[in-house]
Structures are given as structure tokens and as C-alpha cells.
């Protein structure tokens, strides 16, 4: 039992680490790799929780995560990046150290937020809830600080990873039906994003979301 909790904590730390990695990585393929690694850690963590809690439907979730987030989505994004010939470098809005500092503040804030839950909960995974919340916030922070549409998608998917992690760590996972639905949603979202990338590209000749402020009403 103790061992499982420790493994889970290590995985949580790795997930947090990849989340920070996503914040600082400037290369787009590097981002994809980090995202895939995050998915892998998530998948393993889900399987571990499923094993310790005896919730066998979590194995299915784990396999789904592996297939979708480690293999399929990175592959789709890889193909997109290749087809659209996106620059390999990603410009950020804020410089990296500042982003890191904000990220650290967010992690501390998440620990502060979840402290009452940690005291109340009896689950083995309770200590990882803060990490899950931090991952969600870091994903959002990533969406805010990046300009390229593809990186925004990766930020969004990282947020989703955080939510998924929160679900497994706080309640031993959602019902299977919900998880299947979420997985399907993510897949469809990825396709829609793909289509929109092409449209944004043809309209603006760029995937820089900054260009979209031309859509604003002038006064």
C-alpha cells in the first residue's frame, strides 16, 4: 500500500515535471515528446491506482490514455506540424524565467488550495490532488504564454491530462462511461483543431494567433 502511494507520488512528480517542461520547451517536437511522456506517466499512474484500489475499470482508462494521448494525438499533431511546415521554434509571450516563477507560484497556490481536502480525504492518492490542480493551471498558463496555435492545443490537452489526473487521484476515477465520453471528446477536438488549423492557415497565412486580433471590431 505504502509502496503504491510512493510510486504514485513519483509519477505525480514526473507529471508536474513534464508540465514545467512544456512551459519552458522552445522546440515544437520537444513539446510533443514531453506531452507524450506526460500521457505515459498518467497512464501508468492510472494503472497503479486501479491496482491498489481494485477498481478494474481504471485499467481500461489506462489503456485508453496510452493509446490516445501517448500514441494517437502526438501522431496527429506530428502529421499536422509536418504538413503545415510550422517553424520548429516557438516564440513565447513572456520570457521563460518569469513563466517558471509564475508556474511555481501556481503550484504553491494549488497546495494551499487543496490542503483542507488532504486533511479530510482517506485515499492513498490524496497528496497528488495538488499536483493535478497545478497541472491544470500550468496548462492554462501555457495557453496564455504561447502564440502558436499548435502549442495552444498542446496546452489544452495538458490541461485535460491534469483534469484526468485529478479525477483518478481524488476519487479513484470517474465512471467508465464518463471517461469514454471524455476520451472521445478529446479525439474529436483534435480533429476539429486540425481542420481549424488549415482554415486559420489559409485565412491568415500563419498559425500565429496574434493575427486573429484583426477580427476585432474597430471603433
Amino acid at each position: 500500500m505504502n509502496l503504491a502511494a510512493q510510486i504514485n507520488s513519483i509519477l505525480a512528480a514526473l507529471i508536474l515535471l513534464t508540465a514545467f517542461g512544456l512551459l519552458v520547451q522552445r522546440r515544437i517536437y520537444g513539446l510533443l515528446h514531453l506531452f507524450a511522456w506526460q500521457g505515459l506517466f498518467l497512464s501508468i499512474s492510472t494503472a497503479v491506482v486501479g491496482y491498489t484500489a481494485g477498481a478494474h475499470h481504471l485499467y481500461i482508462s489506462s489503456v485508453l490514455t496510452l493509446l490516445l494521448k501517448v500514441l494517437l494525438l502526438p501522431y496527429i499533431l506530428y502529421v499536422l506540424i509536418h504538413r503545415l511546415q510550422i517553424h520548429k521554434d516557438v516564440e513565447t509571450m513572456l520570457n521563460v524565467p518569469t513563466t517558471m516563477l509564475i508556474g511555481i507560484a501556481l503550484v504553491i497556490f494549488s497546495y494551499h488550495l487543496t490542503s483542507p481536502i488532504r486533511e479530510l480525504s482517506t485515499l492513498v492518492t490524496r497528496s497528488t490532488l495538488a499536483v493535478a490542480l497545478a497541472t491544470v493551471m500550468l496548462g492554462l498558463l501555457m495557453m496564455i504564454t504561447r502564440r502558436n496555435a499548435v502549442t495552444q492545443i498542446i496546452g489544452f490537452l495538458a490541461m485535460e491530462n491534469g483534469l484526468f489526473f485529478a479525477a483518478t487521484s481524488a476519487t479513484y476515477g470517474m465512471p467508465l462511461v464518463v471517461e469514454l465520453g471524455v476520451a472521445l471528446d478529446i479525439l474529436i477536438a483534435a480533429f476539429i483543431f486540425g481542420i481549424f488549423f488549415f482554415h486559420i492557415r489559409t485565412t491568415f497565412d500563419s498559425l500565429d494567433v496574434e493575427q486573429m486580433n484583426r477580427l476585432k471590431e474597430e471603433d
Binding site: 495552444q152 494567433v209 486580433n213 476585432k216 471590431e217
Partner: peptide
């Protein structure tokens, strides 16, 4: 408030 930048809108929700 309408900046026309996704980041700005994300910051609002954040």
C-alpha cells in the same frame, strides 16, 4: 476588454 487576442481572453478566465 475585447482585445482580439486569445491569450487575453484566456487570462480573463484564468
Amino acid at each position: 476588454l475585447q482585445q482580439g487576442r486569445i491569450q487575453a481572453y484566456l487570462i480573463y478566465s484564468f
